[in-house]
Design a protein around this nucleic acid. Structure first.
Length: 426
RNA sequence: GGGAGGGUACCGAAGCGGUCAAACGGGACAGACUGUAAAUCUGUUGGCUUAGCCUUCGCAGGUUCGAAUCCUGCUCCUCCCA
């Protein structure tokens, strides 16, 4: 049994606990069962969910049993914590597909075949759907003093706002609290972990456990994954970074981590990787001494990509990175290019167009790199357009067969990081 | 129901008869510097067949040689009173 508490502590993963003095010993005594809840708002988890998921993984590796709870029931209601407005409700069908997608991702991080410490995946809708409303009010609702609920931050802030709070969202807390009780009865689960915004819900579950079962349950919250400027990690201008390769390709995923700011990368290494304290500290030193080497970012990207997309995903992401950020692209085969640029958007034009010569301005627009010809012209004028990683010098340039990087493909680029493939066929 | 103000480009916000494709700020894009970081600096930011042309200032009409600017109707929003 490893000392999970100390591990979490040096990583900075403990924000609050319900029993600071007891937990370290309690966790080192014997194998415990611990759970964390996940919201099935999309068919893929995003970077924000990575942190609690990694927490479960750490617990499992330390010899405890993790339960990942998918909120099929609570997802229908919507958690008011940290939300400024009432949420849109998800349909049952949507929830069902979302849960399937999320399950697959959890299997990559948690071991579901590890004997006593095998991970479990449960859906709270499985026990909530059989619960009658009156029975729920009698057995669970009875234990919730409304004056206590009104004192929760998540409720207070909403009551003060114009948006108000519906009875439905107000009841969210009861459902989540009951989850904990149910998991305790069913699986002897005694510890809930969650983000710091879940504190209110976690403690509600613990209170309910004491009232209904007379048992002592525990809770740990971890910090939220936010950047030094307060923004959430995992959000880009073009949307969230997802764990599903269909939504966010391994290359994009890898690139996101490579581009993490210096100020945030130390935290990411601690929160999201399983590197040891020594390794991380030496990376901290390296970063201070020779920041331009960006060893921390590279290591972070490698570790996290490997975890989510496996060795193969990491390999292709790194390969693409090497080529894309390297020198001129030439003398490659279609096959190689296809592989390297698997993630990059592409367009296909008839070969006849190429023989006639494609003006660079048109090419940029058709490849989706510029919104209009005017914008394309500007990009070229400003020196921001590249063909096969070689800067385009003039707006007059036309693409011809001599610009092909392989048999049928030309690699276009706008600015530093935006790529597109132009394929010619026929 | 009464009164007041307002809808301008991605967002905020000037302009109130011609010199308006429309100030300024933010954002975004590109460049320089760098380290695929941050900060900073520079340029660009309606479209096109680009010395020019076309379409834009809530919508529809009108006045005028000429309208984002004036008039009429409609519509939406904000505030104040009931």
């Amino acid at each position: 049994m490893q000392d999970i508490f100390a591990d979490l502590q040096w990583r900075g993963l403990i924000h609050q606990t319900t029993a600071d003095d007891k937990l370290p010993q309690w966790l080192s005594g014997e194998a415990r069962t611990v759970y964390a809840g996940f919201d099935p708002t999309a068919d893929s988890l995003h970077v924000g969910s990575l942190l609690p998921l990694m927490m479960l993984r750490r617990f499992q590796k330390a010899g405890h049993r993790p339960i990942a709870l998918v909120g099929g029931a609570t997802g229908m209601i919507g958690d008011p914590s940290g939300k400024s407005a009432e949420r849109n409700l998800l349909s049952e069908e949507q929830l069902a597909t979302n849960i399937v997608g999320i399950e697959g991702q959890m299997r990559k991080l948690l071991n579901f075949d590890a004997g006593k410490t095998s991970a479990l995946l449960v859906n709270n809708n499985d026990w909530m759907k059989e619960f009658s409303y009156t029975a729920f009010l009698r057995d669970v609702g009875k234990n919730f003093p409304v004056n206590v609920m009104l004192n929760k931050d998540s409720v207070k802030s909403r009551l003060g706002s114009d948006a108000g709070l519906s009875y439905t969202e107000f009841s969210y807390m009861l459902l989540q609290a009951y989850d904990f009780v149910h998991l305790n009865q069913q699986y002897q689960c005694e510890l809930q972990i969650g983000g710091s915004d879940q504190w209110g819900n976690v403690t509600a579950g613990i209170d309910l456990g004491r009232r209904m079962l007379g048992k002592q349950l525990y809770g740990i919250t971890c910090p939220l994954l936010t950047k030094s400027d307060g923004a959430k990690m995992g959000k880009t201008e073009s949307g969230a970074i997802y764990l599903s390769p269909d939504r966010t390709s391994p290359y994009e995923f890898y690139q996101y981590w490579v581009r993490v700011e210096d100020d945030d990368v130390g935290m990411c290494l601690r929160f999201l990787t399983e590197l040891t304290e020594e390794e991380i500290k030496s990376l901290d030193l390296a970063r201070a001494a020779e920041p331009h080497q960006r060893a921390s970012q590279k290591r972070l990207a490698e570790e996290v990509t490997k975890l989510i997309h496996g060795e193969a995903g990491l390999k292709s992401a790194k390969q693409a990175t090497e080529i894309l950020f390297g020198a001129e692209i030439a003398d490659l085969s279609d096959k190689e290019l296809q592989q390297i640029f698997a993630d990059v958007p592409s367009v296909t034009l008839p070969m006849a167009r190429l023989n006639g010569g494609v003006p660079i301005v048109d090419a940029l627009v058709e490849a989706g790199l510029s919104k209009s010809k005017g914008e394309a012209r500007r990009t070229v004028d400003q020196g921001g357009a590249y063909v096969n990683n070689q800067r385009v010098e003039s707006v007059e340039k036309t693409l011809s067969s001599s610009d092909l990087a392989s048999e049928t493909v030309i690699v276009l680029r706008s600015g530093k990081k935006k790529y597109s493939l132009m394929k010619f066929s026929g």
